[in-house]
Simulated assay, not measured.
Amino acid sequence: MTETRQPLISSARHSPMTDEQRKSLALAYLKAFDRGGKTVEGIPLLDLFADDAQVYFPKWGLADGKAEIGRMFADVGGTLRAITHHYADFNWVFSGTDTVVCEGSSHGEHRDGPWRADLPAWGAGRFCDVFEIRDWLIQRCFIYLDPDYAGRDVARYPWISR
């Protein structure tokens, strides 16, 4: 049996979405980072967002609207040489409304050095993204992670040096 797949950006913007469809859009967003800013289908990352969307990233703050989101992604992305998300290990939480949560891990190369989740155990690489997705667009994405990818900010945390 062939499954009918809804496009990532639908012409039926106001049709109800299932949790699986929201998950698909969130996954397309995460995969776009691994592919340099474009989805597998070649859609630019920013096209996955509503015009008035909000994105939060630690140490950057809240970006309102596509223009600011683009600046934020350029600022943060400019510090990364490569990133790979570990899709097989993602945990997904659905609220029964528009909210989807993805907890996961990654590895990559920051301008200050490499990182991999759990190497060391206290280091970067684990994240939790909270999405609000409706009308086939990301309305809100709050990203929770340690932005010290290379693990250089250790002096302020005495338990690391023990």
Rank of each mutant, 00 (worst) to 15 (best):
residue 40 V to D: 14
residue 90 F to V: 01
residue 102 C to R: 04
residue 156 R to W: 02
residue 53 A to T: 05
residue 92 W to I: 01
residue 16 P to K: 01
residue 124 A to V: 03
residue 150 A to N: 10
residue 101 V to T: 04
residue 87 Y to D: 15
residue 133 I to Q: 00
residue 39 T to D: 12
residue 93 V to K: 06
residue 85 H to D: 08
residue 107 H to C: 12
residue 153 D to M: 11
residue 152 R to N: 14
residue 105 S to P: 01
residue 101 V to S: 01
residue 86 H to V: 04
residue 148 D to E: 09
residue 89 D to G: 09
residue 124 A to P: 07
residue 112 D to K: 14
residue 6 Q to N: 11
residue 84 T to A: 15
residue 83 I to Y: 05
residue 153 D to R: 15
residue 62 L to T: 14
residue 22 R to E: 02
residue 48 L to T: 02
residue 12 A to Y: 08
residue 79 T to Y: 05
residue 135 D to A: 07
residue 59 K to L: 10
residue 62 L to Y: 09
residue 128 C to F: 05
residue 54 Q to A: 12
residue 142 F to R: 15
residue 47 D to P: 02
residue 85 H to K: 01
residue 87 Y to L: 15
residue 107 H to T: 11
residue 118 D to V: 00
residue 88 A to T: 14
residue 27 L to Y: 12
residue 20 E to L: 08
residue 8 L to K: 08
residue 1 M to G: 15
residue 23 K to C: 04
residue 88 A to F: 04
residue 104 G to C: 06
residue 110 H to E: 06
residue 132 E to I: 12
residue 7 P to M: 10
residue 12 A to C: 09
residue 43 I to N: 01
residue 134 R to A: 12
residue 113 G to R: 08
residue 27 L to S: 11
residue 24 S to F: 01
residue 122 W to N: 11
residue 122 W to L: 03
residue 35 R to E: 12
residue 76 V to N: 11
residue 91 N to Q: 15
residue 114 P to C: 09
residue 117 A to G: 05
residue 71 R to K: 15
residue 65 G to W: 03
residue 47 D to W: 01
residue 97 T to F: 00
residue 161 S to V: 12
